[in-house]
Simulated assay, not measured.
Amino acid sequence: MEKKQEGLRVTWLSVWMNILLGALKCVIGFFSHSAALMADGLHSLVDLSTDVVALFGLKMAAKPWDDNHPYGHHRFASLSSLFIGLALLGFCIGLIISSVHQLVDGDSADPTWPALAAAVLSLAAKEWLYWRTRRIARQEKSRLLLANALHHRTDSLSSALVLIALIAIMIGGPQLAFLDKLVGLILGGWLGLEAGKIILNTCKDLLDTAPDQAVINDIREHILPVPGAVAYHLFRVRRVGDMLDVDLHLQVDGSLTVEEGHEIAHQVRMNILNRHKEVLDVLIHVEPASQHHVRELGVSSLGGA
């Protein structure tokens, strides 16, 4: 619970930071006629909307199951990540169109020292927020927080590009004014690729795509070491929001009582849950360890597969 609260705290911190930075960059960008700084400010305000979505996803995913959601509310985290990706993609498309128009029209930027200061402040603040959110996301194994952390990284890198463009224009003069719009165009394309990755990964989660094979193999290792677990098959893992759902068919000695077989299955379940905090639940179907199941269908402690 403490980790979940930490995730909420860092997201609320991001909300207030994006309000201040977004307003600052938009105002200074407007008065200095910097399209790149204005775009960077709008990006921060888009981040604000995605922070709100992340807060919603974290709150909903933490709710217990009810009659309408018997498997819990964890997919709200995936749905929120999808919205973040779509919002970022929409911002990128608008930024690309705006930058192309300004390049064609030949609008010039007149950067000032306040514009440089705003870009430096944004770069430092968002990079710090990226590392902090990323650390918490890895601790909680939260793909929603990780998506939001990547959003902070895109903002810090965009501020870095804006800073470089503004410095170049101030040193090189009006002939380099096109760099301001070119940076906006580059940012639009690069951020669009990041948005595509977020959308693709979220769609995989919503379509019950299995996690990476390394994750699956790590979970499988905790089945057969349990005394009495002879073999298993139909082992499946799927993502449910930021969590994992596991089910399998477990074979035990057919001469055991129902109670004894149930106890072995319970030990397998607890073995997985205790070692993998990201696993939400483990559903186990108990079967007798017949030669058909052990040798042809499953993974066995006897050497059959």
Rank of each mutant, 00 (worst) to 15 (best):
Tyr130Arg: 04
Ala210Asp: 02
Leu58Gly: 06
Pro288Asp: 00
Glu221Thr: 10
Asp253Pro: 11
Leu182Lys: 01
Met270Gly: 06
Lys25Gln: 12
Gly298Pro: 13
Pro227Ser: 03
Ile199Trp: 12
Asp205Leu: 10
Met60Cys: 02
Ile186Asn: 11
Ala305Thr: 05
Asp105Gln: 10
Asp66Gly: 13
Asp51Ala: 15
Leu193Thr: 08
Leu182Trp: 09
Lys4Phe: 14
Val268Gln: 09
Arg9Asp: 14
Cys203Asn: 12
Trp190Ser: 12
Asp107His: 03
Leu248Glu: 01
Val215Asn: 01
Glu260Val: 01
Ser99Trp: 10
Glu278Tyr: 14
Val258His: 08
Pro211Met: 04
Val237Glu: 00
His69Arg: 05
Lys277Asn: 12
Met243Leu: 14
Leu161Cys: 08
Ala160Ile: 09
Thr50Asp: 09
Lys277Ser: 15
Ser301Trp: 07
Trp16Tyr: 15
Ala54Thr: 15
Val52Gly: 12
Phe31Glu: 02
Ser142Arg: 04
Ile136Pro: 02
Phe76Pro: 02
Pro174Met: 08
Asp107Ala: 03
Val15Asn: 00
Glu260Ser: 07
Ser290Ile: 03
Leu48Asp: 03
Gly188Glu: 02
Pro288Met: 03
Trp12Glu: 13
Lys3Met: 14
Gln175Glu: 10
Leu48Arg: 05
Asp247Val: 02
Val10Tyr: 13
Leu24Met: 15
Ala305Met: 06
Val27Pro: 01
Met270Cys: 09
Asn217His: 14
Ser34Pro: 04
Ser32His: 11
Val230Pro: 02
Ser44His: 03
Val294Cys: 07
Ala177Gly: 04
Ala149Trp: 13
Leu144Phe: 08
Gly188Cys: 02
Leu116Val: 13
Ala147Arg: 07
Ile96Phe: 11
Trp16Ala: 12
Val183Arg: 03
His222Trp: 11
His69Asn: 03
Met60Asp: 04
Leu20Asn: 06
Gly241Arg: 09
Cys92Asp: 01
Ser32Gly: 12
His292Ala: 14
His222Ile: 04
Pro288His: 01
Tyr71Phe: 15
Glu296Thr: 12
Ile167Trp: 01
Arg239Met: 09
Leu116Glu: 06
Leu121His: 01
Pro225Thr: 08
Lys181Tyr: 02
Ile264His: 02
Arg75Cys: 07
His74Pro: 05
Pro64His: 14
Ala195Ser: 06
His101Gly: 07
Ser80Thr: 06
